[in-house]
Design a binder for these strands. Structure first.
Lengths: 206, 206, 206, 206
DNA sequence: CATGAATGAGCTTTCATTCAT
DNA sequence: GATGAATGAAAGCTCATTCAT
């Protein structure tokens, strides 16, 4: 998951650029029409390429979908990496800000749509499932490490998952309630994040 | 949203049964293949009907999708109605149980897939958006009423949305992490629910 | 082609009325959409009848088309019958007036559309051809009789056909040139009609 | 309406040839079955092409119909161009010969069927109407110019339309009366043409 | 007599993919 | 590498006709 800067030849660079072009076009089309309504012709047109040529880089449309799922998951995972550097007392706040911030922009609603497509596909296509689970495990491992080793908390895996419930739950909520009052949500979200990271769990409660 | 038992004629009963047949078949196919990959032919075959005959009951495939979205949203809303009868001191616990319980069954993962499809479509199709937002508003109104009038809490709308973040977030989480440890999650979830319903918010925190 | 007033029973009257209802609806739909795009369902709806019930009166859609062709041709033939009573010196004028008058109304443009459909179908369907030729022969016989016996002219068949060229040609012209100046056309048409009915033909000319 | 011989690339030639192939096939099928009964599958088969590929050249079946209407109308217009070179004293004779000649062949009956389809469609589809009216205006302009400037006659527009009444009227007549005696018709037609082009109109008459 | 549910073939159109150039 | 012509199966949908009620 880490980028080792192996130098590329010109041809390789060109190839990578081409692939990015295709994936960008595909992502756009998938958001706009869904995986299965977006035609190769439209993707090709957006990528400024002939439909036939796409098959020099991808074996099939399924392969493009898989590549998109991989790229988007990797990008999401990357965004979690920055929490590593955060001071432990501020983690809840930083995460809250991040969660709220990330849905405050229009771009992220589109991102959410792509995520919905990915998760739906994930239940049907084992290859997609594998990619998604892989990235999720990576993110969880990072976060769990943070929570267990840096914050010294128990139930680290469960707390991790619960943190992540907040992220995806918030994105989901915005889709269903477009009038969501983020102003007030942020207060509740911060309290919730802190509650999840509270050392005393299952002790005082009940 | 209430069921008034108006007696039906034989023809009406038959019609309603046929429509149910179609919607059941469609829901199944949509889960299995997605809205846009599920062909009318397959839906028809599952509904034990000729493809042409479906058009006696639905104007188009889009109309079937809309009907499915409406039906599923209504069913989800119904499930929230039972919280009305819950004693206020137990609300957090009941909701937690409900949230965890509802994702513990295989049926609900399929339900989640349908939800993903619906939310993706919601960003593309204004008619679908309208249906989803309508049902979400209804559920929120119920829950807000509960929180404000029965529990006497402020920030009722925000707390409502935050509660619902937990439900959809949890369902989402299970799709990404199929090994989710529900056992431990339930503890955290109950604490989170209680935290959201805690009278002191934004006061002690910070 | 003549109406002998045989008294009808109530049931027969009802039947005739039903058939008229269907033919009126069909004619309307055929004008609006063409023979092969007008669906039985639409015809049935316009005739305020169930689709199935139409088959009590007509064996097939083809039979309805044939009946329409028959009825419309018969009506057109009827309109020619009134020329019988016209004074021979006025025939050209009366026919001119009739020809121009008949296309001056909107109704007759629709009539023309139906005629176009009929003539196109006539080249494909022998049964339709038979009906059209039968009525045309009837009209020609009448007109030829008039020209030969009342006006005492030679070449009666050819003159008849030439007269009829004017009728259909004028209707055709209006479809292609909707700005047709009828005011001036009427002068030319009268002269043409008179020329066709002129006793000296092939004699002075050339 | 004039042909400028711009040289074509190989690809352009191929494209033009393909389009001709489709239009020829379509014209054949339209004559045989009518616009709306001729299926794309049959047109494709006749054009020796897959059904799907037709959509590389035409947006829809409607577009093919429009192209056919345009091509046939243009061809018909072209045929009128030759009258320009005719000596004014012979115009009536030449036109008569042309009118009679053009319907004497089987090809032109088929042409007539296509014309019927076109005129029927013209009343339903504004785009088709526009194409037909455009070509008709072009032909009329040519003929009016001839009659007014070369023959020096008044009422040029009306005479033009009246000439054209003869052409379409004759074609129409042959469809209704397949036993039409062309031998005798030609005499009457020549006299009629001359009558229409006679300098004294509305003067002696009446 | 009258309905409208039901069928299944056929309609126009789209689409992933291949391949000659 | 790059094109876009070409395919053929499948998509959503329509329609003439039948038949149980």
């Amino acid at each position: 998951m880490e980028q080792k800067p192996i130098p590329m030849t010109g041809a390789e660079k060109r190839r990578t650029a081409r692939i990015s072009q295709i994936l960008d076009a595909a992502a756009h089309c998938f958001v706009e029409m869904g995986f299965h309504r977006a035609g190769m012709a439209k993707i090709a047109a957006r990528a400024k390429m002939s439909p036939g040529h796409i098959y020099h880089y991808f074996e099939s449309k399924e392969a493009i979908i898989a590549a998109i799922v991989d790229r988007e998951s990797a990008r999401a995972a990357e965004r979690f990496a920055e929490f590593d550097a955060v001071d432990s007392t501020e983690l809840a706040s930083v995460m809250t800000e991040r969660a709220v911030q990330s849905i405050a922009e229009k771009t992220d609603i589109l991102q959410s749509v792509l995520n919905m497509e990915m998760l739906a596909e994930c239940q049907r296509n084992p290859e997609i499932a594998c990619i998604i689970h892989k990235h999720d495990r990576y993110v969880r491992d990072q976060l769990t490490h943070l929570i267990r080793d840096k914050l010294g908390l128990d139930l680290a895996e469960a707390r991790t998952d619960m943190m992540m419930v907040q992220f995806s739950g918030l994105a989901n909520r915005l889709l269903r309630n477009p009038d969501l009052d983020l102003q007030n949500m942020v207060v509740l979200m911060r309290q919730t994040m802190m509650s999840i990271l509270s050392p005393t769990i299952g002790h005082e409660a009940k």
